[in-house]
Structures are given as structure tokens and as C-alpha cells.
Simulated scan of single mutants.
Amino acid sequence: MSFSSAPKTIAGKPVGPIGYGLMNANSLQLLKHYFTKYPEDASRVVLSIKGAYDGATQSPTASPEQIRASVDECLTLLDGTKSIDLFEPARVDPNVPIEETVKALAELVEKGKIGSYGLSEVNAQTVRRAHAVHRPAAVEIELSLFSQGALEEAGVVDTCRELGIPIVGYSPLDRGWLTGQFKTLDDLPQDDFRRFYPRFQPGNFEKNVELAGAVEKVAKKKGVTSAQVAIAWVQQQGVLPIPGSTKVERVQENTKYVELTEAETEELHEALSKAHVSGHRYPEMFQAHLDK
């Protein structure tokens, strides 16, 4: 859970309550409602929250003061119904040394306000600098068949494996591309935020439909869905995938375990090697805070 549409401020700097959704019905408030009704489930759920990010300006806010405020706001919204097992600054704040951010997070762990901390969208050097202060419990990267940059370029995966840090892969379905549901631009609602993303722009869209079709071909031969193949590939890399779902049937589909054979993996790689995914994974306004 990350980002806010209604940022608050401390000393004139935005810190923002965290949660997807409306101000009075966001994800943390829904979680509070759920765990109030089913308190026995609290210990069965690992709650990972991303915060310290200003949704209004789309920029990280990860000074020690802002980190503490972000965590306190989350705890206020949860109202004692569930602890925060893992808290991650959504991005690296270019105005704050990572050591200062991590020191604040480590203090919150010591105080029992969060169980552990993680990092998101970082490079190998940042992981090492953070680890020198306090070991992260997880590092989150974007990883999918369409977004393999973290495996190929950043070195962050090898660094995490060297240091024994679990890796979490967000957007394993590449914002829906790898579900096989997009055939034309008309399949995307006019008000869908993804229309602003490069891979969904005219020109890029048509090329990516062909690549998504190659994944769908493997899925049909295997008797599973494209999403299940895409998630299985991420798991095959030793990464924990966290697909987003808004429907019960999608959650059930995405949590069904599927294992790819060596031949299936090779077929996927061969198909994707013949053409490149068209378009960057984020619009330009977001790119400044990636892989930092």
C-alpha cells in the first residue's frame, strides 16, 4: 500500500497519510475495518506498507522527521487493530542521505512501531549503504517478463542475494499487460491511469500486444492463464511476486501455484528476445526516483 491523495505537512513539508483510495475510505481504513471484525486474522497476515511519499508532487519525503510522521499516521489509521510488519519508504529521497533514513527506520524498529523496514526502487550501492546501518528485511523491485532491468542491469538482485536480503517483485503482470486482457486501446477505459504510461501509448501499445500474445501462447499450451505464467516466471527468479488484484477471482487465479518447465521458460525467453518491449515502464515524471 502506498502513496496518498491527501498529503499532510510537518514544518511545511508533506508527509501524507498512506493508502490507496478515498480520504475516508482508503486501504488502511479498510484494513482497520477488517481486523476489527476478524481480529483472529491479524497474526496470520504480514502487513507491508510503503510510505514517506508525497502523492501530490510525486516525490519522496524521507527525512527522519517525515519517516516518523508517516509511520505514526499509518498506526493512527490502523488504530491498534494490526501491527506494521514491514515499512518501506516508497522511493529514495535525493535530499536525504539513505543512512539518515535508515537510522530513523531502525529506531522505529527498536521502539516496536514497525517490525522491520524495507527499500523500494534502489540500486546495489544504496542497498549496501543501508545494510551498513541496519539490515533491510526486504528490497522491492519491479520485475516481470516485460521489466527485467533489475536482473540485467542494476546489480541489486545479486547484491541482495549476497547479503541474504529477500527480494519482492512488484507489478509482476506489468500493470495488466501480462494478463492477456489487452488487445486494442479500447480495452482500456478512457479514465484509466495507465493511458499515461509509455507502454500503453499508441505505437507502443500495438507492439506490446504481440509480445503479450507470445506469453498467452505458452499459457494456452500449458492449460493455465497468462497471469499464472508471468507470476511463475518471477518466482523462478527467486523473487516473491506481489500482483495487484481487485477481484476475488483474480486473487484466486494469481495465488494458484504454477511451475514452468525448462522448455517453457526457453520458449518465453526466445519469444521476448526477438523484439523489445516498447516504452519505458514509467512516465518521465516518475523516472527521476527509480533505481536510486
Rank of each mutant, 00 (worst) to 15 (best):
A275P: 02
R250C: 05
G223K: 10
E259G: 00
E267V: 03
E264Y: 00
T255K: 06
A263C: 04
L272I: 04
E253T: 08
G223N: 06
V229P: 10
S226C: 14
E253G: 09
L268C: 10
K274W: 04
G238A: 07
W233E: 13
A230V: 15
T246N: 07
S273K: 12
K256V: 08
H269F: 15
Q237T: 09
E259R: 02
Q252P: 05
Q228C: 13
V248S: 06
A230C: 13
T246V: 09
W233A: 14
L240N: 05
E264G: 08
S273G: 14
K247S: 04
N254F: 01
V248T: 07
A227P: 13
G238L: 09
N254W: 01
T225H: 12
E264T: 03
T261Y: 02
V234C: 11
P243V: 03
E267N: 07
V258G: 00
I242P: 02
A227L: 09
Q237E: 08
V229E: 13
V258F: 00
S245Y: 11
I242M: 05
K256C: 00
E267Q: 11
R250G: 00
T225C: 10
E259P: 03
E270A: 09
T255G: 06
K256T: 02
A275H: 11
E264L: 00
K247Y: 11
E266V: 06
V234D: 11
V251W: 02
A227I: 10
A275D: 11
T225I: 05
K256D: 03
K274I: 04
A230K: 11
S226V: 14
E267Y: 10
Q252R: 12
E262A: 04
N254H: 03
A263G: 06
T225P: 11
V224L: 08
P243L: 06
G244W: 04
Q236N: 12
A271L: 14
P243A: 01
G238T: 03
I231K: 10
T261G: 14
L268A: 06
V239Q: 14
Q235N: 11
P243E: 01
T246E: 14
V224K: 03
E253A: 08
V248G: 06
L272T: 05
S226E: 14
V224S: 08
P243S: 03
S273M: 10
Q235C: 15
G223R: 10
K256P: 02
V251I: 12
L272K: 06
G238M: 08
T255A: 06
L272Q: 08
S273I: 11
P241R: 04
Q237V: 08
S245V: 10
H269W: 12
E262K: 06
Y257H: 00
K256F: 01
L268I: 09
H269I: 13
V234W: 13
S245H: 12
V239S: 13
T225F: 10
V248N: 06
Q252G: 05
T265W: 07
I231A: 08
I231S: 05
L268H: 10
V258D: 00
S273L: 10
E249C: 03
Q236E: 12
E249G: 01
Q235I: 14
T261H: 05
